[in-house]
Amino acid sequence: MSVQDYIRERFFPHIWCPGCGHGTVLNNLVRAVETLGLDKNEIVMVSGIGCSSRIAGYLDFHTLHTLHGRALAFATGVKLSRPELNVIVPMGDGDALAIGGNHFIHAARRNINITAIVMNNRIYGMTGGQFSPLSGEATTATTAPFGTIDPDFDTVALATAAGASYVARTTTYHVQEIRKRIAEAIVHPGFAVVEVMSQCPTYFGRKNKQGDAVEMLRRYKEGTVPLDKQPADPEKIPRGVFVQRERPEYCKRYEHLVQAAMTDGAALT
């Protein structure tokens, strides 16, 4: 199968701006699914609201385009109900970690087998360039004309602390990594988080004098470093797989609970 077999071609060209990294994530998400040879009927994609969330409509899976920040909560219902389905949840940084922060940490805590992709462009694009909890201090946005005074989250550290059993980071420059990491995340039997740093040339790039999409990708290339090389380059943002651990998965645990409940006569009264 080719990339075209996984997308809903009639909606292309897509709504994203020229040079938006989200298209690159879409591109390589499809390649990850193709690599794994998954049946499209076994994939449910649940998204929230924002630029990132439009990704669901473009893909020929079962797609559920929900509410701002709530994608993981909807996805938890889908997954617990039908654990055999692959549930993939693409989110923006505001979607995942501002309005959806509570669902994010609790999905990680449960270690429910869902693949969460945080498409981090450090800005609210759909509403025109407001800062997000991943913008970081001193970035400029329409709601931070004098620079933000808000510190940012570290997605990887947050996901790790909350209990995610697979945590990775890459960028839209490193496309082979996107494919590999997403494929690993889908296969991983637990809550998996892949943060993809994704350029927003229209708002973040322009407001913060980072140049066009090409220039922003160069920054990803030069400003990040593989995890094992980071000690030599502590100023750079590390990429790679930060966590890959075994933890009991929620739906599996629930199966055991059902068996226990069914054998416990008292439970039936």
Partner: peptide, 15 residues
Amino acid sequence: MEDEIASMCAVIGAS
């Protein structure tokens, strides 16, 4: 679930 909002969302997903 972690809150009331999530509960409502989860039942919709399951439905």
